[in-house]
Design a protein around this nucleic acid. Structure first.
Lengths: 118, 118
DNA sequence: CCAGCCGGCAACTGATGGGTTGCAACACTA
DNA sequence: TAGTGTTGCAACCCATCAGTTGCCGGCTGG
């Protein structure tokens, strides 16, 4: 249930905008589910920084935290929000240079200077 | 020529992560090419703030600044980077829950607790 | 020629975020 | 029981960024 696909897309964009976070996701993708300490061994940042990123990613729904055996918490990738973001991107791009582009250029050509509101 | 699609995608993500920037793009999409002052009339922020956002968007290739007749600079949408970002997203998501997911779960299942090195 | 509008720097402030260190709590094991 | 390893929380720098105000230069029009 996503009443606001834009919100989901925004979180995905925010998440993917950071190189560390992308590296984190890449590590999870290539190495499978892992814990924060585990990931800290592969990335040049501390475990706490990773935990923060994981929290943000979990908030965005890109990863899920599943409690493991001992006390280790394992993080697994979730691709569902990615699809939402993809659709958002596609819809956006479609609007831009779709029929609107021609219309815009037409308006641009015919609109008198004073016609622009305000 | 994009030797690094990830860099383009990152800029797109950064650009789309900001609500003001999305509103800016939406205004451009619905109203056609416009100038910074024009856009300042439709958004609740000052012209200078808009100019900064436009500069960032231009840097990302999402808009192009074309000098108009008087001294007005018109900004037009460009959807090319969006496609790159889309492909980036698609490739990422494909890796996640592709064959790798099964492999990861397999490894996860068979690895004995003590087998974890260190 | 002067007034007005428009656009582009420049400087400043406030907030946000990435990253670090430190510490406390808990589980397992020798 | 002592020790080790792992997690979570909190406090704290530092950089960046969004947004503002102010000023100056250049067209345009009367």
């Amino acid at each position: 249930m996503r009443p606001d696909a834009e919100a989901v897309a925004e979180q995905v964009f925010v998440a993917l905008a950071d190189p560390s976070r992308r590296a984190l996701l890449a590590a999870l993708a290539s190495g499978g589910p892992a814990t924060a300490t585990d990931l800290a061994g592969r990335l040049p940042i501390t475990r706490q920084a990773i935990a923060k990123h994981l929290a943000l990613l979990a908030e965005a729904g890109l990863v899920t935290a599943e409690p493991g055996e001992r006390r280790r918490v394992r993080y697994r990738l979730r691709s569902d929000p990615m699809r939402v973001a993809q659709q958002f991107l596609a819809a956006l791009a479609r609007d831009w240079d779709g029929p609107l582009a021609a219309l815009s250029q037409h308006l641009d050509d015919t609109a008198p200077p004073g016609a622009a509101r305000r």
